[in-house]
Amino acid sequence: MTDQRQRRIDTLSQAARRKSEAKTKAAETAIRSLIKRGKPITFQAVQREAGVSHSFLYTHPTLRDRIEQLRQQNQAAPPPPSDAASENNIALALTTEIARLKKRLRDQDKELREALAQAHGENLELRREIARRGGSVPPAPTSIIGPC
């Protein structure tokens, strides 16, 4: 193998390892958050909270064992905390959910703007090609989102 190829392999391996570590950390943070809020610990709840896939949780032995153990403990869990603590937990949960939804909205907005810019570029290319061929070009549509 060439040195350059080995460096590429090492770089990709390191990136995959970092990605896996980040997902593991997100899952562990989600588990702690669910416990703190008194929510049931399930694969689906952890998956939603951490933003990781079910298959990641099921194929990660440490996380899988921990989730299964906590899920069993939740079945015999003590009653929820007092009203004051519950109100604080609800406020924390809502604040966290709002932050997560805002981030998701920003990400989706960015993706849509990029897709719109790409489609706009493709539209311009097609219009230029039609004009080069001597065809009639209809007026460009106006954007409802605004300038990119």
Rank of each mutant, 00 (worst) to 15 (best):
C148M: 14
Q108D: 12
Q75M: 15
L112I: 08
G51F: 05
A99L: 10
E129W: 09
L34T: 01
Q14K: 13
I145R: 15
E114Q: 10
A15I: 09
N123M: 13
P78C: 10
G38N: 11
A45K: 11
Q6L: 15
L105W: 07
K36I: 07
K39Q: 15
S20I: 09
E111A: 13
S136A: 15
R37Q: 13
S20A: 15
D10L: 10
I41Q: 02
G135Q: 06
F56C: 00
E68A: 14
G146T: 02
K102L: 13
R18P: 06
Q14G: 11
I144W: 11
V46E: 03
Q72E: 14
I31T: 03
E97V: 02
A119F: 11
I98M: 08
I41P: 04
R32W: 04
S53Y: 07
L34K: 00
R64Q: 12
K110T: 06
A15T: 02
K39Y: 07
T142R: 13
R17V: 08
R37L: 15
K23C: 09
D10M: 10
R66N: 07
P78K: 11
P139K: 06
T42K: 00
R100P: 00
D83M: 12
R37M: 12
G146I: 01
R66C: 03
G51H: 03
L112D: 08
V46S: 06
A131E: 13
R17S: 13
Q4R: 01
T142W: 11
A30E: 01
T2V: 02
D109M: 12
A85M: 07
D10I: 01
E122F: 07
R127L: 08
P147R: 06
S143I: 00
I31M: 07
F56R: 00
L116Y: 04
L63I: 02
I144L: 14
V46P: 02
K36S: 08
A30I: 01
R37D: 13
L70Q: 03
Q73S: 12
E49N: 01
I130K: 05
Q14N: 13
V52C: 08
S55Q: 13
Q6W: 10
S20F: 05
E129I: 05
A50G: 00
Q73F: 14
D3A: 04
T96Q: 06
Q108R: 15
P139N: 08
A50Y: 00
E28R: 02
Y58F: 12
N89Y: 04
N88K: 11
L124V: 11
R106H: 13
R132G: 09
R32L: 03
R48M: 10
I130C: 05
E129Y: 05
L92P: 01
S136G: 09
L124W: 07
T95C: 05
R8E: 12
M1Y: 05
A85T: 08
K36A: 15
Q73L: 15
I9F: 08
R127K: 07
I130D: 03
S53M: 05
Q4W: 07
A119V: 04
C148R: 12
I98L: 11
R37F: 13
A93V: 00
E21L: 09
D10Q: 13
R106G: 07
